[in-house]
Nucleic acid binder design. Structure first.
Length: 323
DNA sequence: CGCTTTTGACCAGCGC
DNA sequence: GCGCTGGTCAAAAGCG
């Protein structure tokens, strides 16, 4: 499979350490709703439930063994960058990278991520407040306390090679905004989970350097089971943890084994966190395989430009889905 | 008819 | 303080 990287989805996940532990129980609760048995499936969906699952549990779920490869660490600009040299990851090809971070300083993107809790308040205020349009909007925005740091939601993102912007993940989303992205001809779309009381959001944008790459960032934690009534095969996709057999069949990736993939990468991340004290919120963590090629570095740089590097990025390989 | 998408306006945060 | 940018709101339009 590694011989055909171009036919694979790039999938990365951004992960917030600060919420990693705080929401650990939440993820396990969410996992109870999974309707499938294979551990790697439920665990992967846990990721979709907000990306706050514990690597340890993940490792267990996947039957992971400790990292099988060497790891090299370095740091950049106050944020720690973890570089992994993974000797036995050749089966994955060269397109692998993982970044992770805990707290980020002050990029606008980060600020946006931190707005969530407040935005909820803001929205609530609007819903319960005045109904006279402009005033309502203005008043609602005053609900935010100045100087009060917003609580950062756990984030979990994917870089996916796909011609479809909005990838089905099993949940129902409602688009609530679209903005032009600076230095990019492609807009960024904002989606919110349509389930009541579920504040999970996600952003979808296309890479300006490689339009075939879609960057999807999840924010928050689903507090409900996967919807059972979905259009198309979304539920099936979700139930399969997005490793739907039909998807695999559509590509040359039939031999792709997600368990193997996660087992290969996440233990390394886990070890990095525990061994290097990188989960203290000091900065972002970036994990690069030694054999990361220039294309990966390009995506990495782009993510950095997007301010997304504060979270964890796990590239995975997905087959292209037919529109 | 209900839900979703589109889109212009608004606001907060940040840098200068 | 001002301008820029990201994120969100909500009315209107679109869709099944």
């Amino acid at each position: 499979m590694s011989s055909e990287p171009r036919d694979l989805y790039y999938r990365s996940q951004f992960y917030d350490d600060d919420h990693h532990q705080q929401h650990g129980t939440g993820s396990s609760a969410a996992s109870q709703d999974h309707q499938f048995d294979p551990p790697q499936m439920s665990t992967f969906t846990d990721c979709l439930n907000g990306g706050f699952m514990d690597y340890n549990s993940l490792e267990k779920a996947f039957g992971m063994s400790p990292a099988t490869s060497s790891e090299v660490f370095s740091s950049i600009e106050g944020n720690q960058k973890v570089i992994i040299g993974e000797g036995d990851h050749h089966h994955l090809g060269s397109e692998n990278m993982v970044t992770q971070n805990s707290s980020i300083s002050s990029s606008s993107t980060e600020a946006g991520a931190e707005e969530d809790s407040c935005k909820s308040t803001k929205k609530d205020g609007q819903l319960t407040g005045s109904d006279d349009g402009e005033n309502s909007k203005k008043i609602s925005n005053k609900g935010k306390k100045k100087g009060e740091k917003r609580e950062k939601e756990p984030r979990f993102a994917f870089m996916t090679k796909s011609e479809v912007d909005h990838l089905e993940d099993g949940y129902r989303w409602r688009k609530y905004g679209q903005k032009a992205v600076k230095n990019s001809p492609y807009p960024r779309s904002y989606y919110r989970c349509t389930t009541q009381k579920c504040g999970v959001k996600k952003r979808v944008e296309r890479s300006f350097q490689d339009p075939s790459i879609v960057i999807t960032t999840y924010e928050g934690q689903h507090n409900h089971p996967l919807p059972t009534t979905l259009r198309g095969n979304a539920a099936a996709v979700a139930a399969a943890g997005m490793f739907q057999p039909s998807m695999l069949l559509s590509t040359q990736m039939s031999s792709f084994n997600p368990q193997e993939w996660f087992g290969t990468y996440l233990p390394s991340i886990n070890n990095n966190q525990q061994g290097s004290n990188t989960t203290t919120g000091a900065g972002s963590h970036v994990v690069y395989p030694q054999n990361m090629n220039s294309v990966d570095q390009q995506y990495q740089q782009q993510l950095h430009d997007y301010g997304l590097l504060q979270d964890m990025i796990v590239p995975s390989m997905f087959p292209k889905r037919e529109p």
